[in-house]
Amino acid sequence: MRLTIVVGMTAGGVGMHVRSLVQRLGGLGIEVGVAGPPETEERFDFTGAGARFAPVRIGSAPNPPADLAAVRSLRRAFRGTDVVHAHGFRAAALSGLALGRRRTGRVPLLATWHNAVIATGPKRVLIAGLERLAARRADVTLGVSSDLVARARELGAPDVRLAPVAAPRVQPAKRDADAVRAELGAGDRPLLLAVNRLAEQKGLDVLLAAAARWAGRTPSPLVVVAGDGPLEAELAAAVARDDLPVRLLGRRSDIPDLLGAADVYVLTSVWEGRPLVIQEAMQVGLPVVTTAAGGVPELVGDGATIVPVGDVAAVADAVSALLDDPSARAELGERGRKQAGTWPDEDDNARLVADLCRDLAGR
């Protein structure tokens, strides 16, 4: 069986998930190709994981001329394929345009929705049209969180299912925690970690505002943020202007080392589906403070401290309470580790996709 996976521009969890599928589906009897931007292939090396690759420019925002060109490229990429699996509603919408309406004999379309739309105004209206197209053209839609499942149903998707995306199993840290803390300049100060794309969805303005409150503690925690993105210059200017105890580390390849050195993981996002780094933090028993963003509450259960989205005081107070009580930190970390043991793993994800592909191809 031949499967073509379609993916757009991504720098994080979606690309990691697709690479995980590519690595595993071959062993389940499925020949995999990936169609997407060359930049995404360069970052995640799908060919190195065993897939054939077709370059298709799928941008992160609507662009009618570029989208029309992408549809033409997808039609070429879909020749000879038995099933298409699109990741993200834009990839699903463009794949749906390339394949045409659902009908007998059409190549089946499986779509996984990873993110909600948080745009407003005219842009929101335009994107809602793409969401509706993605929902109605897919034969089966998978949502990584319950709110995405509900949204796809609302827009007319004929068959929608919850399909949690698993994080990779965290590799052991390669460096001693004290050495990592020394490199970061933390010393004996509490070390707070966030791993994020530096984008509006991540609510990093809330994290910086909370850091301003923590600056009054003795000793004041050091907040380190790993990741890059469009807000990098703006955030760096805010850190310098307000003299905040925050370091922007840029992209890092040593996340296990950072997790092993930190005292608390902090997520302040406006929306998340099933964030991989929270899963990684909880796997290793690092206590987590997170906003109640999207699918996060159903992911973490009682294994993390959950605060309202956008509430600076709640974030600051929750972290301070953990820093003041080492036993509470240890207890929360252990609850997180137990919760992590209940999640599906990457093999479960691959088996689900393989079973769905066989079912769709046989219809």
Score class of each variant (00 low, 15 high):
Val149Asn: 00
Ala167Ile: 03
Val144Trp: 10
Ser146Thr: 14
Lys174Ile: 11
Ala182Phe: 09
Pro168Asn: 12
Ala186Thr: 00
Leu162Glu: 14
Arg153Tyr: 00
Ala194Glu: 05
Leu133Ala: 02
Ala182His: 11
Val195Ser: 10
Arg175Asn: 15
Glu183Phe: 02
Arg132Gln: 15
Asp178Ala: 14
Leu142Trp: 05
Leu191Ser: 05
Ala177Ile: 06
Ala194Asp: 09
Ala152Thr: 13
Asp188Cys: 09
Arg151Met: 06
Leu148Arg: 10
Pro190Thr: 01
Ser146His: 14
Val160Lys: 02
Arg136Gln: 15
Glu200Lys: 10
Arg197Gly: 11
Asp178Trp: 06
Leu142His: 01
Ala177Arg: 07
Gly185Trp: 04
Ser146Val: 12
Ala179Leu: 04
Arg153Lys: 00
Asp147His: 05
Arg175Glu: 15
Glu131Trp: 09
Val144Lys: 07
Arg136Val: 15
Asp176Asn: 11
Val170Arg: 04
Ala194Gln: 13
Pro164Phe: 01
Glu183Ser: 04
Ala150Arg: 14
Ala199Gln: 01
Arg136Tyr: 14
Asp159Thr: 02
Val195His: 09
Val195Asp: 04
Arg189Ser: 12
Gly187Leu: 02
Arg161Met: 12
Pro172Lys: 04
Glu200Gln: 12
Thr141Asp: 09
Val144Met: 09
Arg136Trp: 13
Pro164Asp: 00
Ala173Leu: 05
Pro158Met: 14
Glu183Lys: 00
Leu192His: 12
Ala182Gly: 11
Ala134Pro: 00
Leu184Lys: 02
Arg197Asp: 12
Ala179Ile: 04
Ala152Pro: 01
Ala167Met: 08
Asp147Val: 09
Ala166Lys: 14
Arg181Tyr: 08
Gln171Arg: 15
Leu191Glu: 07
Pro164Trp: 00
Asp147Thr: 05
Gly156Asp: 10
Leu191His: 06
Arg181Glu: 10
Leu192Ala: 14
Ala134His: 03
Val140Gly: 05
Arg151Tyr: 06
Arg132Thr: 15
Val170Met: 03
Arg137Trp: 12
Leu198Thr: 04
Asp147Trp: 08
Arg169His: 02
Val165Lys: 11
Val165Asn: 13
Leu133Gly: 04
Arg137Gln: 15
Asp188Gln: 14
Pro164His: 04
Lys174His: 13
Arg189Gly: 05
Arg151Gly: 03
Arg197Met: 13
Val170Asp: 03
Ala135Thr: 00
Pro172Ser: 03
Ala167Pro: 06
Pro190Leu: 04
Arg181Ala: 08
Val165Gly: 08
Gln171Lys: 12
Asn196Tyr: 10
Glu131Cys: 07
Pro168Ser: 13
Arg136Glu: 14
Leu133Cys: 01
Ser146Asn: 09
Ala166Ile: 08
Arg189Pro: 09
Ala166Leu: 10
Val160Trp: 02
Arg161Glu: 14
Arg181Leu: 10
Gly187Tyr: 03
Ala166Cys: 11
Glu200Met: 05
Gly185Lys: 05
Val195Tyr: 08
Val165His: 09
Pro168Lys: 12
Leu191Asn: 05
Leu198Trp: 03
Ser145His: 08
Asp139Ser: 07
